[in-house]
Amino acid sequence: MLHAQTMWGWPIAWYLFLAGVSAGTYIVAAFWQYAKKQNYLVKIGIYLTAPCLGLSIFLLWIDLGQRFKFPYAFLRPHESWISIGAWLLTLFFILVAIQWLKQFFARKQEQTPDYPGWVWVAGVILAFLTAIYTGILLGVAQAIPFWNTPLLPVLFLVSALSTGIGAVMLMAVIFKKKQAADIEEGFHLMAKADVGMIIFEILCIIFYLYFMAKSGVAASASAAMIVSGPLAVIFWLCFAVLGLILPLIMELNSLQGSTVKINVTQTAVMSVCLLIGGLALRYIILAAGIYESVSPFL
């Protein structure tokens, strides 16, 4: 009687992924703003956040059965995580859209637009909440035991930060201009941070799958589906190898030696791998959501 949910598929996987990426890019931008360094990376981060978040909200909206009744989704933020998410995404989007527009209209100037500190603080809080909430959203769906774990928000947060770094690096090497001459230092620190993220993510996914494999019937079937079942190719190839191991090796490699020379192709390949891994993670967790079985003997 075990079967996986088919209610939330690719649109929601893309939505969870892009919401995570936008949270990550914003946090990267805010970090460099705070460090008062790497103006170029702040700009890239801000330029990336609003489109990613907008697209993720669009995908969430597309997935609704009754798209034009969406305002009802804001009604119960005290109880429903869809409502909480609707508010979070809206507030975060308003903030990053304003920052995007201000930066776009000030693009001729050397400096990035100036904001009072609380704007960045509010933005960072909203970014963290957005990344975490995507995990809680799945976590409280009671029919799917595989999702009912506090590890899920942690895993999604780490993946959000890692993919955010990947997205900023990718855009930075694609649009590499004169003012980017000093981004080596920025890349060095981001690669270092990402090594930590990836190692933490590897630990999370191992603990997550192991504990699920050792728990109830439905959750262990979910874990088996990922590790050795129909999702194994996506899990091992797209997530484990492309999303974790390959970027980890490439980053460790680039961190050797005191001077960093950015190799455009290598960085681009590594960033794309990070992004593929982030999307694959969201998809396998959704697709492996096996329902609790209905039986009087449970």
Partner: peptide
Amino acid sequence: EKCIGCKYCILACPYQARYY
């Protein structure tokens, strides 16, 4: 009248009593 078709309830019901 109020349902927007987000399908969250279907994933929440441990008896799978709902459908889309």
